[in-house]
Nucleic acid binder design. Sequence first.
RNA 1: GUGGAUGUAGUUCAGUUGGUUAGAACGCUGGAUUGUGGUUCCAGAGGUCGCCGGUUCAAGUCCGGUCUUCCACCCCA
Length: 455
Amino acid sequence: MIQKPSIPKGTRDFLPAEVVKRNYIFDTIREVFRLYGFQPIETPAMENLSTLMGKYGEEGDKLLFKILNSGDFISKVPEKIIDEKDSGKLTPQISEKGLRYDLTVPFARFVVQYRNDLTFPFRRYQIQPVWRADRPQKGRYREFYQCDVDVIGSDSLLNEAELLQIVDDVFGRLKINTVVKVNNRKILAGIAEIIGEHNRLTDITVAIDKLEKIGLEKVNQELAEKGVAVEAISRLQPILDLSGNTSEKVGQLEAILSTSETGMKGVSEIKTLFEYIERMQLTAQVELDLTLARGLNYYTGAIIEVKTTDMDMGSICGGGRYDDLTGIFGLPGVSGVGVSFGAERIYDVMEQLSLYPQKSAESTRVLFVNFGEKEEAYCLSLLSKLRQAGVNSEIYPESAKMKKQMTYANKKEIPFVVLAGESEMGSGKFTLKNMTSGEQHVVAAEELIKIVIQS
RNA sequence: GUGGAUGUAGUUCAGUUGGUUAGAACGCUGGAUUGUGGUUCCAGAGGUCGCCGGUUCAAGUCCGGUCUUCCACCCCA
């Protein structure tokens, strides 16, 4: 019985043309990362659940893909737990591994484990897939690639500034217009402190994160529903109303947050960061956005989010500073900062705006038409020479009909076809056909190589 | 996880109040053209109508379930 072939929900196969385009994105990003002195690492697709659980908040734990233990995983589970039918209790009994949810937490684990082999500040990049058991949507998949750059073991805000420069550089090369939004968790903490709700930080940030989307009224409503005091909400209003350019906002914040040590620290960090990037002359516009919260709860300082201004799409890049991610793994006091580029969303943006360079679609440059055994043998040495000269070339593997071979070349968008039959063999030459113009000339091997390389 | 929409040749889509052999365009294969692709003309192949069940004399069409894709919420790259 045959079954219809399929792949799991939210995953995708990639055809050659798609892989070529994706590689163009990966190559561009990788090139920039290396330019700024970052080194590559890789970590396994699966991690111990103890490494992953509790790092992404309650929501995150639910979105982790868990791997069933091998062998007879059920017999050792106490009957009581099975009878209770409580997934929360059963899961740790039958699963101890999970697919990684992002690259930052595995990186923290990695840093702690290899601390003696690494040179700090450690600048690493990592381009690998991650998995989330989210419900798929446009621009949201269950398996997707992240391209992370992080500097760990340095408090300097110069790192934040350099990451913004990298962001600017990458999207400049990919020709995507962006707006970079920056905020600081310390400012958000300061705000929570000032309004007297310092232990409701998460609820407050999640709510004001929606300001742009649902409006002030609904944000206030949500805050009230979450149990934030009415007085605190009213004290929050002037902060949500902040307007003007970055330096104006900073000025107002300094006045509002003057009694909060944490808040003032955040404001000073933002000031320093903007001083740096002013000197770096970025192309993209960078703005302070107090409504930017970002859910990942390990961020402690700067938070960064990048959106394209070319179309409506979720963030295509995001990140921030985490002061103590390695602490959980036994190495406290090591601060890191990083950003993650979302390859799939960048792909979707580039696809819709047709931003791929023409050249990236091409694979084979020269096809040898196969006329039979003798002709095949005649072609092989030139084929080798072309390849040695770095020209992507292939010979049709059987002496099929001419029309079929030409159609093959046409579909693969091969720009040159070499024809060598009896008459060419007699003269020791080759017919080179330009598939774009339709012109063809009889030339010697050396000249053929020269023409192909030069065009 | 909650709510809503969707699914018909390889692809994009038609398909009337349920009614006989489910259509088109593009693509594919072959031919016109035995050493020449893209244009044109001719012919042909290709569908358990997502899957399972129900209602009916009769289901692509109605009902239930399930899966996929998409949208909103949640969250996020």
